[in-house]
Design a protein around this nucleic acid. Structure first.
Lengths: 231, 231
DNA sequence: TATTGAAGTATTGTTCAACAAATTGGAGGT
DNA sequence: ACCTCCAATTTGTTGAACAATACTTCAATA
């Protein structure tokens, strides 16, 4: 039995499953959720004192959490003034699309060598969206749409691309809170997402990419228009 | 004279020029330089106590700096164990190229709408490399090469793309420290960089992109081979 | 010999209290 | 309405303290 073999190497990384996380990270997780869900409106100032009292953590720990979220562009840290919930403007939205487009398109075009299960995740996101639509949960549709694009990014099979996508999409989410009528925004894309998925599943990657490109054109255009009033 | 006009808006952001930065950021800057230049070898453990004494900052402030660099993947933070200089492996190098490729290629293909001065930055990087070669400064060649690709990324005209590129390239820099013979690695690409620049300056973007793609193939292949021994 | 267990030590995680430095807001004078 | 000055508030940073965890050492055991 001392012939351990190497099955041990194949064990999943349990590190995270156990409570292996700092309180700063947990605080950051909470704040991230609050920001993304819109509980904290863009532009809101986050007082160190109040929040550290509310969460029962020290100011130092809270500041670590702020640093985390600052790097994700969900909060902006103004020196000697405090941290605020980011308030994406029109220029930010344009910038976001400029970053997303090449990453997502390349991921789809190269989906032939996507990691196992990646296409399945795309399908899951499509169905998640359709389910949300069925029960009239428009915010759920938006969430599913984010999951869809996250899954698209995952096709690239790159940890870093996935990470970047996660950040970009979280910021998109914030942008939706700033714009005029987010409610009707996502629904029209449900069919489009399914169409993209089906081509993906069929191995017609170039077709899928073209559709995705068209999606980007339309979505950006629409979102930019929705931003016209503000900023 | 009260007709201030709007020239004031065009002033450069002075915020950073004045001492407008936290000590945590300054500490992070120093550490970043040390890590990128190889003064701190990959895998090195960074003791909070020793470094905070050396830099004369409190542990709390130092930890904020660690958080910053951790997000850039230059340091890895292992819970309850400390922070270490990241030690990129073969898989990381592959991942880095997977992220860089689509971003840089898209930037070059769309260079027609690059911001003013962006192409000039590419040229500057090319010449910086040639100057370094002339005086036999091989590490300078590597630096110039990073600047070249950073400038390529800048063609996309996106703050976020530029930021992502900066991070990816800093990590590449780390990878070079791990690999076998970094010395001879960069020099062969000097001519290639110039060729790409010239096509860029001539508006032959697709040609430039094709050359860049070929560069990626060669470089990744070569780098992966250089990693064979370790990890 | 190799593995397990039980100290003791060193390091990180987190909190707290204090003070310096900067921004904000308003009172008061012009 | 505008400017100056002052006070209140908030952030920036420090140092010390304690808890929780990891690392080391060494003895005991199979």
């Amino acid at each position: 039995m001392t012939v351990t073999g190497d099955w041990i190497d194949r064990l999943p990384d349990v590190a995270e499953a156990m409570g292996r996380s700092s309180t700063a990270e947990r605080v950051a997780d909470m704040l991230r959720e609050l920001v993304i869900d819109g509980a904290l409106a863009p532009g809101t100032r986050l007082s160190e004192q109040k929040i550290s009292e509310k969460f029962k953590v020290s100011r130092n720990t809270l500041r670590e959490a702020f640093r985390l979220l600052g790097h994700e562009r969900l909060l902006v840290h103004e020196f000697n003034r405090g941290v605020f919930v980011a308030k994406p403007g029109l220029d930010d939205v344009v910038d976001l699309y400029r970053a997303r487009r090449p990453l997502e398109l390349a991921a789809v075009r190269g989906a032939a060598s996507a990691p196992a299960g990646a296409v399945g995740a795309v399908r899951a996101a499509v169905e998640e969206g359709e389910a949300a639509e069925a029960r009239g949960d428009w915010w759920g549709i938006g969430t599913a749409n984010m999951h869809f694009h996250q899954a698209i990014g995952e096709l690239a099979g790159s940890t870093r691309v996935a990470e970047v996508m996660r950040q970009l999409l979280a910021e998109m989410r914030l942008a939706f809170h700033v714009m005029a009528a987010p409610r009707e925004f996502h629904a029209p894309y449900l069919d489009e997402n399914r169409a993209i998925y089906e081509r993906l599943a069929d191995g017609r990657f170039e077709e899928a990419a073209e559709r995705l490109a068209a999606y980007f054109d339309r979505a950006e255009d629409q979102l930019v228009r929705a931003f016209a009033p503000s900023r």
